[in-house]
Design a protein around this nucleic acid. Structure first.
Lengths: 193, 193
DNA sequence: TGAAATATGTCAACAAAGCTGTCGTAATTA
DNA sequence: TAATTACGACAGCTTTGTTGACATATTTCA
C-alpha cells in the first residue's frame, strides 16, 4: 500500500524536472520509424475544443438544453428537410438517443417534423424560426472564436485549417462530410484540389 | 399534431434545395458587422475531433477504460508527480469525478500515488510502466493521424496549427496551457512571438 | 394480393462521466 | 490550540450514450 515500499518505480519523488516523458529506457525504439508523439498538438486540440464547445454550452444552459440538442438543431438548420435516418447517419448515435433530445426540441418548438410526400414513412425535419435563430446564434458565437484565432495568421492559414481538418477525418467519411459541409450549389470555397 | 395542419411554417416540403440556411428573411442583419458563420470550420472541427478521439477509444475499450481514464493517464505521464489539485485544475472536473477513474487506474496498476515529502497531505501521481506505455501508445496513434493530416500541407502549416489552437483557448487559460504543453526546459518548438 | 422489408416510435434497463452535498481524517498553518 | 488545507468517500442526481424488444405505418417485391 505504502508507495514508498515499492522500490521498482522511479524514485525521484521530488523530481518535477522529469517532465518530458522520455521513452522507457531499455526499450529500444527507432526515432525515425517511431517519432516522438506530437504532445503539443494533442493537448492544444484538447483545450481548444473544450473552450470551443464551452461557448455554446453557456447559451444552451439558458434553454436547459445540452450539447446533444445543439447538434440536432445545428444540422437540421444546415440541412432543412433531412430525414431521421440521415440525421442518425450524421450523428452516429442510436435512434433512441436521438429520439430523446429530438422529442424535447419538437415539444418546445425548435424543430418541426413532417411526413415525407414521396415516402410517407419518413419524417423530414425543419427548424422553426426559433430553432433557426438558436442555431445561428450558436454558430455565430463559435465563428467569432474562429475569427479571433485566425486574426494573427496569414490569410492562407484558413485554407490550411480546412484542409487539415478534412484530412483528420477518416478517409471513408470524407466524401460524406464534404457533401454536408459544401452542399450542391454552395458558393462556399471548397478546398483546392 | 399533424404537421400538415400548420400553415405557418415554410411549405417547401420537398425542398432539399433550401440547403443553405439563409438568414431569416425580414430580419435585417448587417453582413459586415455580422458576417456569415463559418459552418465549414465548425463542422470540420466537430468531425475531426470525433475521429481523433475515436482512435483512442478503440484501444481504451480493450482495457475497459473510457476517455476519462485516457485524460488522467495522459497528463500523469506528461507531468509525473503532479498532485491531485493540479490534475483537477487541468481537467476542470470535480474531485469526485476524478476520484472514480483515478481509483480504477490505481487499482489496476496504471498510476501510482505517493504522499508528498514537503507536504504529506498531498498525493503525487506517477505512471507505472504499464500506464506510461498505454499513454504513449495512445499519443502515438493520435500523432499518426496528425502526421497524415499535415502531409499535404506546407511545412509552415504546423506552426500555424499550433498558433491557431492556442488562440482558440480562452485568453485567461493560455498561460496555464502553454506552461503545460511546453514545460520548463522543454526543447520543443514554442510558437514564435 | 400477400409477405417481407423499411422508417420510425417507444418502453425498459443499463453505463459512462459529469454534477452537488456532506462528512471524515490527516497534516499544515496561523 | 484552532482554523485551514488536501484528499477520500458515500449518496444521489443528470445527461447522453448503449442494447434489446416490440409496435405501427408504409412501401416493395414475388
Amino acid at each position: 500500500m505504502n508507495p514508498f515500499l515499492d522500490p521498482e518505480l522511479s524514485p525521484d519523488v521530488s523530481a518535477r524536472t522529469d517532465t518530458q516523458p522520455n521513452r522507457l529506457e531499455g526499450q529500444l525504439s527507432d526515432p525515425l520509424r517511431d517519432p516522438a508523439p506530437m504532445f503539443d498538438l494533442i493537448e492544444l486540440l484538447f483545450f481548444a475544443y473544450r473552450d470551443f464547445v464551452g461557448d455554446a454550452d453557456r447559451i444552451l444552459e439558458t434553454y436547459r438544453f445540452g450539447r446533444a440538442h445543439h447538434r440536432v438543431v445545428h444540422f437540421v438548420t444546415r440541412q432543412p428537410g433531412l430525414t431521421i435516418a440521415e440525421l442518425l447517419d450524421i450523428l452516429r448515435i442510436t435512434k433512441q438517443s436521438l429520439g430523446r433530445v429530438l422529442k424535447e426540441l419538437l415539444d418546445e418548438g425548435f424543430v418541426e417534423s413532417r411526413a415525407g410526400v414521396n415516402d410517407r414513412r419518413q419524417r423530414h425535419l425543419y427548424p422553426t424560426a426559433e430553432g433557426r435563430r438558436l442555431a445561428m446564434d450558436l454558430a455565430q458565437l463559435q465563428s467569432e472564436r474562429f475569427a479571433h484565432a485566425l486574426e494573427g495568421l496569414p490569410c492562407e492559414a484558413r485554407g490550411h485549417m480546412i484542409q487539415f481538418f478534412l484530412a483528420m477525418i477518416d478517409p471513408s467519411d470524407r466524401a460524406h462530410v464534404s457533401a454536408l459541409v459544401w452542399p450542391e450549389g454552395s458558393a462556399q470555397q471548397r478546398p483546392a484540389r
